[in-house]
Amino acid sequence: MNSQFPKYQRLKEEIASWIAAGKYRPGDKLPSENELAEQFGLSRQTVRQSIGDLVAEGWLSREQGKGTFVAKLQGDRRGPGASRMVGLITTHISDYIFPSIVRGVEAALKQQGYRLLLSSTEGSKDKERESLETMLSQGVCGLIVEPTKSAEGNPNYEAFMALEYHGIPMLMINEQYADLDWPCVKVDDEAGGFAAAEHLLAAGHRAIAGLFKTDDLQGVHRMKGFVRAHRERRLAVEPDLIVRYRSEDRDTRPLDALRELLGREQPPTAIVCYNDQLAVALLDVIREAGLRVPEDLSIVSFDDSFLATATEIKLTTITHPKAELGETAAGLLVAMLDKDAGRQARGHVFAPQLVLRSSTAPLADG
């Protein structure tokens, strides 16, 4: 338990986390006050204060002569006059395109009279679970989630289902877990991967390397589009030209792989990067090899972030709506908070666009 808070508050948070994690479900009986006092080394008076607060807040219910039970959160916790706090869980908050997404969500919610509670998983499945538990314990009325490493499954399924059981509407952004049938606001990443590769193929390039982060489904779909563009032209992709990496390896694996590819007797003439952030990092590798962009190597990346125009090489890139995606997600969630709308809300898929800048050029003869 967190030692920064009074003992009764720490016990409250501990019990709320049990409920959020599904350890105790609605209708389950809690340990007695004596048992809790012994387990946590607290007085019965402190335990009674914690339990009383949780009963008053709707988490627990008391039955005379029977004990204390987990209550189902009532729907009116989301109604007028109840909680106006919406939770947003992202993989990151303060870097790359995430601040723009957050601003979009916050602006749209503010217009509708809602406040925003932010949390970041920092790419950790364990922190994602902690964030879900926190959101439930804080009494949010709705939740927007960017799944963490969405291509690696959903070990936090029970925590998500606890939110659903308590009547808290949720939608996902950028991608979604396959085992959760929630609305999702995202970009058509496969179409983006196709457009990136097709642009280079149409310019005469054939030896095109693709570098994709594949522990999230965004990268998986971008890679699928990349491969499909080749197949539709009846071209085989050389296996060594597809570089896959995980989030933990993003600062080493793709850079080392490109160094190796550029050192080959027949190096690639173009590359497709998972995002602008990676493309900017790879520019240093290209300079080290004594090559120029786009004269020796063309580059297409993703997201059209501020990084796409931050260096002397202006990147050709695939758009990501960022703030608009956040605004759309917030608008859909507000609609879901209407009891009549329920879970009937549908997600939204943005069509990506290719933004042409100076990092690509037709393949020179020979």
Rank of each mutant, 00 (worst) to 15 (best):
residue 152 E to Q: 15
residue 30 L to T: 08
residue 289 A to Y: 04
residue 335 A to I: 01
residue 195 A to M: 15
residue 282 L to A: 02
residue 340 D to T: 14
residue 248 E to M: 08
residue 69 F to I: 00
residue 233 R to V: 06
residue 256 D to M: 06
residue 220 V to A: 03
residue 10 R to L: 13
residue 196 A to Q: 04
residue 258 L to G: 08
residue 328 T to G: 00
residue 33 E to Q: 15
residue 281 A to I: 00
residue 66 K to L: 08
residue 351 A to Q: 13
residue 40 F to G: 05
residue 362 P to F: 05
residue 254 P to Y: 06
residue 268 P to V: 12
residue 202 A to R: 12
residue 124 S to Y: 07
residue 297 L to T: 02
residue 122 E to Y: 03
residue 333 L to W: 09
residue 229 A to K: 08
residue 328 T to W: 01
residue 53 D to L: 10
residue 143 L to V: 14
residue 350 F to C: 09
residue 275 N to T: 01
residue 159 A to T: 14
residue 139 G to F: 10
residue 255 L to N: 07
residue 275 N to Y: 01
residue 19 I to G: 03
residue 132 L to T: 13
residue 348 H to A: 08
residue 61 S to H: 02
residue 84 R to E: 12
residue 333 L to E: 11
residue 324 E to S: 09
residue 23 K to G: 02
residue 49 Q to D: 05
residue 62 R to D: 00
residue 153 G to F: 09
residue 149 K to P: 05
residue 10 R to P: 05
residue 339 K to L: 13
residue 351 A to I: 05
residue 217 L to E: 14
residue 136 L to T: 07
residue 5 F to M: 15
residue 308 A to Y: 04
residue 18 W to T: 01
residue 170 M to S: 13
residue 251 D to L: 14
residue 111 Q to P: 04
residue 89 I to A: 11
residue 93 I to C: 03
residue 285 V to P: 07
residue 346 R to T: 13
